[in-house]
Simulated scan of single mutants.
Amino acid sequence: MSDGKVRILRHGPVGQVILDRAAKRNALDRPMLEALVAGLRNFDADPAIRAIVISGDMQAFAAGADIGNLASAGAIELYHSGFSELWDAVTLIAKPLVAAVAGYVLGGGLELAMICDIVVCDESAVFGLPETGIGIIPGAGGTQRLVRAVGKSMAMEMILAGRRLTATEALSTGIASTLTPKGEADATALGLATRIATASPTALGAAKQAVLQSFEMPLSAGIRYERSLSALMAASEDRAEGMLAFKERRKPIFKGE
């Protein structure tokens, strides 16, 4: 399914949202972001879908945010526009998100990729936050997430000096976890998402939240949070099924309960 902004595909238990604005190198304007969020929310609410892939095309995952009319907006209008908050809506997706990126992954495109739980890139990918070169700064979490991924010095060089990272550098710095030959990011990401989809949906949701909380909490508080979630798993039917399947040496049948 396509609405001219994104394409929505289903691959068994894996949903895929493809950014579909090739003429603009998938620059993220409001209608495109709204369509992306709608697609993600629909998959998140569908019990048959257990993992989600976000991808672009071979030229660009997304070459930045297309702010359109926001470029001439005043400070108060911009602050209340809700444009950057559309990225926040992506952070609320409970199911695992895998980004499959190629070509340009710049500005808002990099911010979107960093929101995803796992990033798979092919060897053509180029990563950067070029905003200061046009008189602005990242506005969708880029300054905060990038430093957590690559450290202060590299983040400063990318943001202040406009340094762009190759796919190999993105892998070595931790922005991406997997590097593929050109043209294979989508297939690799879908394969990874399919493997994720074999796990318990209940456990996946809890594990994702526990990892994300590690960015928000001190270590001791994070460990207590993890321990509480681990204990709650004892009430899950998926846990009982997983334990029984392990004992019986068979594949578990998880229901997300």
Rank of each mutant, 00 (worst) to 15 (best):
T194G: 13
P47D: 10
T173N: 06
L33A: 03
E237D: 15
I136F: 09
E237V: 00
I159R: 00
R7W: 06
V126P: 00
L129K: 03
L212W: 04
L229Y: 02
L92S: 13
L19W: 09
T198G: 04
G82R: 01
K255D: 05
I18S: 06
A199E: 11
A245Q: 07
L78F: 13
I93H: 10
G256D: 02
V147Y: 05
D57V: 00
L40R: 07
L165R: 09
A23H: 13
G12D: 14
L232W: 01
I93N: 14
A60F: 14
V17Q: 06
P47I: 04
A170I: 02
G222A: 15
A149P: 11
G139K: 03
T180K: 15
P181E: 07
D66E: 15
G12F: 06
T91Y: 06
K24T: 12
L129N: 05
N26V: 01
A140Y: 05
I52V: 14
G205D: 03
N42H: 10
K182W: 07
A63G: 15
V53H: 08
A189K: 09
W87D: 02
I118D: 01
S2G: 15
E241W: 04
I196D: 08
A71D: 01
T180M: 15
A22Q: 10
T180P: 09
A62H: 09
T202Y: 05
M32C: 15
K247N: 00
A45P: 06
N26A: 07
T178R: 11
S72E: 02
M158F: 13
A187N: 13
I52F: 11
M156S: 07
A231Q: 13
A189W: 11
A167L: 12
G68Y: 03
T194R: 13
A99T: 10
L165S: 11
A189E: 09
G191I: 01
K251T: 11
I137S: 10
R41W: 01
I18P: 00
M154Y: 03
M154I: 12
L204S: 08
A245F: 02
Y79N: 03
Q213I: 00
P218I: 10
L92K: 14
H11D: 14
R227V: 05
L232F: 02
A113S: 07
V105Q: 01
K208H: 05
G242T: 02
A170S: 13
V53F: 09
A210G: 01
G151I: 02
S220E: 14
A23T: 05
M58Q: 12
A73Y: 04
D88R: 12
I134P: 00
A235T: 08
A38V: 02
M154V: 12
A102T: 10
D3R: 13
E184D: 08
V119Y: 03
E248A: 08
G151K: 12
S230V: 09
T188S: 12
V14P: 02
K247Q: 09
G174M: 08
R148Y: 00
Y79C: 00
R30Q: 12
V211F: 07
H11Y: 14
K208P: 14
G68R: 08
A210C: 10
L229W: 02
E123G: 00
